[in-house]
Design a binder for these strands. Structure first.
Length: 259
DNA sequence: ATGGCTGAGCTACTCAGA
C-alpha cells in the first residue's frame, strides 16, 4: 500500500503535475494540503483515476483533501472542535478493513509572525487540539497514519542555519514542543528511520534561489502508530517535482506499507 | 539589514505562505 502526501499549493495550478504523479506512482491514498479552492472547484480528474474524494475546501486559502482508491470502503472522521472549524486544515478517514486504519491529513498553521500574538497563538492552540485528538485515537488502539505539512522544524538539521529560525514560528521552541508532544503519544516519524538529519528536505522557498542553493526545510512528515511502523518498507521524497515547470514549493512524499 | 517569489481574489493591490 502506498500513501502519498503533498502540499500542492493550489490544486488548480498543479492539476497536470498531480496527474503525472498519479500516472507514475498510482498511490492508494493521496493527502493534499493547500488546495486553495472550494469543494466544488476541485478538478474532476480523480474520478477517471478511480479515486473517491474527501475534501475540506475553502475559498482561495488553505484547504485539504484525501484521494482514496475506490476499492477501499471508508468512513469520514469528524473533526468538529471550534479551532478546527476556523480554517480548513484537517480531514481524515477510517478504512474499513481488518487493520482498522485511520488516516489523518493535516496542514498546520504557519504562525508567523510570532510577535503579532494572534497568528502564533492560533498555531499553538491548533497543535494542542491536534495532540488531544491524536492521543484519543492512540488510546483507542487504532492504527494511525498522521501526515501532512506540520510547519515545524523538529530537528536542528531540518534547515541549514537553525539558529536563524528560533524566533520564527517554525523553529520556535513552543512549536517544537507541541510537535514532540504529538510524537511522544506513541508515533514514529518515518523519515528518521531512513535518513540522517540534514540529508533531506521537503520544502524550498520560491525566493532567494532556495532550490538552487538547496536551502530547504523538512516540515512535511509521516507519523505512524507502532504496529504500522513495523510494516513500513520505505519512504520516498519526490525531489524532482521541485525542479519541474511551475512547481509547488513543497514536494510529494510517500510511504510504502506491507499491507 | 532587507527583499527577492507565487497564488488567489479581483482588476490594484493585499493577504498568505514559511
Amino acid at each position: 500500500m502506498i500513501v502519498c502526501s503533498w502540499n500542492i499549493n493550489s490544486v488548480r495550478m498543479r492539476e497536470s503535475l498531480l496527474i503525472e504523479l498519479i500516472n507514475s506512482l498510482n498511490p492508494d491514498v493521496i493527502f493534499l494540503q493547500e488546495i486553495k479552492c472550494q469543494n466544488n472547484e476541485f478538478p474532476q480528474i480523480y474520478q477517471k483515476k478511480n479515486y473517491n474524494l474527501i475534501i475540506k475546501g475553502e475559498k482561495g486559502k488553505y484547504g485539504v483533501a484525501i484521494l482514496v482508491k475506490k476499492k477501499f470502503e471508508f468512513q469520514e472522521i469528524n473533526f468538529d472542535s471550534n479551532i478546527f472549524q476556523r480554517e480548513a486544515r484537517v480531514c481524515g478517514i477510517k478504512i474499513k478493513n481488518d487493520l482498522n486504519l485511520h488516516l489523518v491529513n493535516i496542514y498546520a498553521p504557519n504562525g508567523n509572525p510570532i510577535e503579532s500574538k494572534e497568528k502564533f497563538s492560533f498555531k499553538i492552540k491548533w497543535l494542542s487540539e491536534l495532540n488531544r485528538i491524536i492521543k484519543k485515537l492512540i488510546n483507542s488502539q487504532v492504527n494511525l497514519i498522521l501526515a501532512g505539512d506540520f510547519n515545524v522544524l523538529e530537528h536542528h538539521d531540518d534547515v541549514q542555519d537553525f539558529d536563524n529560525w528560533q524566533k520564527d514560528a517554525l523553529g520556535h521552541i513552543s512549536s517544537r514542543k507541541k510537535f514532540r508532544e504529538i510524537l511522544f503519544s506513541g508515533l514514529t516519524n518515518i523519515v528518521r528511520l531512513f535518513y540522517k538529519p540534514g540529508e533531506i528536505y521537503s520544502y524550498w522557498d520560491y525566493q532567494k534561489a532556495s532550490w538552487e542553493r538547496n536551502y530547504g526545510l523538512l516540515i512535511d512528515h509521516f507519523l505512524v502508530s507502532p504496529k504500522l511502523a513495523c510494516l513500513i518498507e520505505s519512504i520516498f521524497f519526490e525531489k524532482e517535482y521541485r525542479g519541474k515547470e511551475k512547481p509547488s514549493d513543497h514536494i510529494p512524499l510517500w510511504i510504502k506499507l506491507k499491507v
